[in-house]
Simulated scan of single mutants.
Amino acid sequence: MRPALHVISGLRTGGAETMLVALCGALTAASMPQHVVSLTGDGPNAAALERLGVTVHRLAPRGAAGSALALIRLARLIRSLRPAVIQGWLYHGDLFAAGAHRLAGAPRGTLLAWGLRNSDIDHARYGRLLAIGRRLSGWPGLVVSNSQAGADFHRAEGYRPRRLAVIPNGIDTARFRPDPAARAALRRELGLPDDAVVAVHAARLDPMKDHATLLAAAARLPDLRFLLAGEGTRGLALPGNALALGRRDDFARIQAAGDIAVSSSAFGEGFSNAVAEGMAAGLMPVATSVGDAGAILGGLGRLVPPRDPAALADALAGVAALPPPVRRAAGLAARARIESTYGVGAMAERFLAAWRGAGAGLENEIPPSARRAT
Rank of each mutant, 00 (worst) to 15 (best):
164 L>C: 06
349 E>K: 06
273 N>F: 08
338 I>H: 02
353 A>C: 07
44 P>M: 09
333 A>Y: 00
265 S>R: 00
100 A>P: 03
120 D>N: 12
128 R>V: 15
136 L>S: 11
335 R>E: 00
362 L>P: 00
233 T>C: 10
48 A>K: 14
363 E>S: 14
79 R>C: 09
256 A>W: 02
207 P>I: 11
197 V>G: 02
293 A>T: 09
5 L>R: 04
280 A>D: 02
140 P>C: 07
210 D>N: 05
48 A>T: 12
13 T>G: 05
107 P>K: 11
96 F>R: 00
361 G>W: 03
184 A>G: 06
167 I>Q: 00
57 H>Q: 07
128 R>N: 04
374 T>N: 13
85 V>N: 02
347 M>P: 05
365 E>G: 13
226 F>Y: 10
343 G>H: 12
316 L>H: 12
145 S>E: 03
338 I>L: 07
129 L>Q: 14
227 L>N: 01
90 L>G: 00
319 V>P: 00
333 A>E: 13
291 G>F: 02
131 A>D: 14
333 A>G: 03
57 H>D: 08
128 R>P: 03
91 Y>D: 06
201 H>N: 15
257 A>S: 14
238 L>R: 02
6 H>P: 00
109 G>L: 11
89 W>H: 13
272 S>P: 01
274 A>M: 08
78 I>E: 00
105 G>Y: 08
300 L>E: 03
65 A>I: 11
17 E>Y: 13
250 D>G: 15
107 P>Q: 10
226 F>D: 01
248 R>E: 11
341 T>L: 13
205 L>P: 01
42 D>N: 14
163 R>N: 08
96 F>P: 00
46 A>Y: 05
366 I>P: 01
55 T>L: 05
67 S>L: 05
254 I>L: 05
110 T>M: 09
16 A>W: 11
99 G>E: 05
366 I>Y: 02
157 E>T: 02
343 G>V: 13
12 R>A: 15
313 A>C: 10
104 A>G: 09
331 G>F: 05
67 S>A: 15
23 L>E: 03
352 L>Q: 00
